[in-house]
Amino acid sequence: MALTREQLAQRVAQELQDGYYVNLGIGIPTLVANYIPEGMEVMLQSENGLLGMGQFPTEAEIDADLINAGKQTVTMAKGASIFDSAESFAMIRGGHVDLTVLGAFEVDVNGNIASYMIPGKLIKGMGGAMDLVAGADNIIVTMTHASKHGVSKLLSNCTLPLTGKGCIKRVLTDLAFIEIKNGKFYLLERAPGVSVAEIISLTEGELVVEGDVPEMQL
C-alpha cells in the first residue's frame, strides 16, 4: 500500500534528532510536527521570521501579528525568537538549519528539484523554496512517486523549471525512500506491501536496487 500523507510525515519524523532546528514546508511536511517523538526537543523554523513555532492558537489566542510561512495563525513555543526576513534567510542560506523538509513536482538523478512552477498553468512564485534548497545540507523531499496517471516524478532529467540544481540527496515518496548519489537513485526502503518491481516500473530515472530492500517501519 502506498503511504498516506500521515504515514509520510511519520516516516520523516524518524529522521528527527533531539536538538534539531527544522524547517517544514507547506503540505505534508507541516504534518511532521504532529509526530515529533515524545521527549525529543525540536525547534521549528518558519521562514517569515519565527524560530520556535508552536501549535495553532485557540480562538482566544489568535493574533494577526503571529503567523507562519503558510500565512496560518500560530503560537510561539517556549524559547521562541522573532527576527526579520534577512536574518531568517541568513539562518537558512548559512546552513544553520539542521533539517529541511519540502515538497516537489519532480526530482531527478542529479539531485535537481522542480517545485514552484508549471509554465502556462501555475505561476505563483517560489517563496523561500529556492533559498531553502540552496542553503540546507540535510533536505528530505516528500512527494508522490508518480502522477495519478502513473507518470513518474523521479526522472533522469527534470522537465519543469528548476527550484534548485544538484541539491537533493533524499526523497521520500508514497512508495519508497530513496537516496540520490553518483547520478542515480538508490532504493533504501519500500512502503509496506509495495514491491520492488512496482517501484522500478514507476521510476523513470535509473534506480539501483541492492540486495533485499527493507520495508519501512512505521
Binding site: E47, S85, A86, S88, A129, M130
Partner: peptide, 20 residues
C-alpha cells in the same frame, strides 16, 4: 499577469530580503 498587463519579476524570498 497572464494577459501581460503586469510585469512580474519572481525573486526568491531570501534574495528579496537581502536585496533590500
Amino acid at each position: 499577469m497572464m494577459n501581460g498587463e503586469l510585469e512580474v519579476e519572481l525573486t526568491p524570498q531570501g534574495t528579496l530580503a537581502e536585496k533590500m
